[in-house]
């Protein structure tokens, strides 16, 4: 049910999330200013990052991207919702004693989902940007030192998008249980 809600209403969630994602993406790239937007394209709905290059980017002393260039990288918009759906599904199934506890857990889940998506979506976009430079370096027979964000992107793509919400869900439960204990004493 959450997946279906995401499919039809996910667009609004993504649009709400764009400003914090943009903020996080700014911290990942020092040579460009990222602008994120939601776009409906032929191959589906996409989250597009347009990077305005503010400092020339060099690949082994050769300019790969000049200052002022605009580069578009994108990911599938639905892909960004996967951690939300997993986290909220686990929390919806988490055993609780009362409706109030469930509401508290879901509220904690929303905050955690924001955190998880800040850790994943901007990195997926920034990683693709750097991956493009790595491809360029490979084409020109040079080498571009792989930045950490590319490794993080690979981690996210190879299971991190699932692992992070699965870790966040029990942590939300622990935090809520502790909060309840401190309130009752």
């Amino acid at each position: 049910m959450l997946s279906a809600i995401g499919l039809w209403g996910g667009r609004y969630a993504i649009e709400v999330m764009i400003p914090p994602w943009m903020l996080a993406a700014e911290t990942l790239g020092t040579s460009y200013i990222p602008v994120l937007k939601y776009k409906r394209e032929a191959q589906g709905e996409r989250l597009v990052m347009t990077a305005l290059v503010t400092r020339p980017i060099y690949v082994r002393e050769r300019i790969a991207l000049p200052r002022g260039a605009f580069i578009d990288v994108s990911i599938d918009a639905l892909h960004t919702l996967v951690p939300f759906v997993i986290l909220l599904t686990v929390l919806a199934a988490w055993p609780v004693a009362s409706f109030r506890q469930r509401a508290r857990l879901l509220a904690a889940g929303l905050a955690a989902a924001l955190g998880v998506s800040m850790l994943t979506t901007p990195a997926l976009l920034a990683g693709r940007f750097d991956l493009m430079l790595i491809d360029y370096a490979a084409h020109t027979g040079t080498k571009y030192d792989t930045p950490g964000v590319v490794y993080w992107m690979i981690f996210c793509e190879s299971g991190g998008l699932w692992l992070l919400p699965l870790l966040a869900a029990p942590l939300c439960a622990v935090v809520c249980a502790r909060w309840e204990r401190t309130r009752s004493t």
Partner: peptide
């Protein structure tokens, strides 16, 4: 194809695994 590939299938696999 695309919605199932990148969205429904991964979440369903994880839900069933849980």
């Amino acid at each position: 194809f695309l919605p199932v590939h990148i969205y429904f299938a991964p979440t369903l696999v994880i839900a069933l695994s849980c």
